[in-house]
């Protein structure tokens, strides 16, 4: 990571590609949460990383890159939303900035963190979590879809949820001790 930050700060375009691979998902999630429209969100993501590259030399390498990128993404998304909301868009009158309402700074940071935690999962666990939470599939349906044993689906889901609970502990209800049993079981099994 240190080497990536050095390359990034040096303005190496390949480092931007690596940073995009690492944080592009989380930035996309924040952009989508704020602007909604997928095409506008894609534009926001594009602008975010281009702005980040321009400002890379000012990035303090002793700090975490994620909050820095997040701040750029949020600001860029709100600017894009504001531009889209101008009442005189396409007209001849003066353009006036409209106030925009969006999710709070803390809420979109939370969304960024959740996406980052999901992206940090091993791919085989991430697929199971995605099919379950986004696809709405039960464990037997996931097993059939992926052509793997039901037990494998359950163990991957178990591991994934433990990782997510650990990574996102600060967003979850206060615990008493130890890791939570967040599996909840498969309602269909």
């Amino acid at each position: 990571m240190d080497q990536l930050l050095d390359r990034f700060r040096a303005g190496d375009p390949e480092a931007v590609r690596d940073v995009y691979q690492r944080y592009g998902g989380a930035v996309t999630t924040v952009a989508r949460s704020i602007v909604g429209d997928p095409e506008l969100a894609a534009e926001v993501v594009q602008q975010t990383f281009t702005k980040a590259w321009r400002a890379a030399s000012s990035f303090d390498r002793n700090r975490d890159l994620a909050p820095w990128l997040y701040s750029i993404a949020r600001r860029t998304a709100i600017d894009a939303l504001r531009a889209e909301s101008r009442p005189t868009r396409g007209g001849h009158g003066p353009e006036v900035d409209q106030p925009v309402t969006t999710l709070s700074f803390e809420r979109t940071w939370e969304i960024f963190e959740v996406r980052q935690a999901v992206d940090d999962l091993p791919i085989e666990e991430r697929v199971v979590v995605q099919l379950s939470h986004f696809g709405g599939l039960t464990h037997p349906e996931i097993a059939e879809r992926l052509n793997i044993a039901l037990g494998t689906v359950k163990s991957r889901s178990h591991r994934a949820h433990r990782r997510l609970a650990a990574a996102l502990a600060h967003l979850l209800p206060a615990n008493q001790d130890g890791l939570p049993d967040v599996l909840g079981g498969d309602p269909s099994s």
């Binding site: 996406r115 995605q130 939470h133 609970a165 650990a166 979850l172 209800p173 615990n175 049993d181």
Partner: peptide, 26 residues
Amino acid sequence: PPAQDPQVAAALDDLLANKAIWAPLD
């Protein structure tokens, strides 16, 4: 620390229910 509570599963479900979390990388 990570949480230990039956409510945790529901809270995690809530966090993951946001469709934007699953927006693909383009």
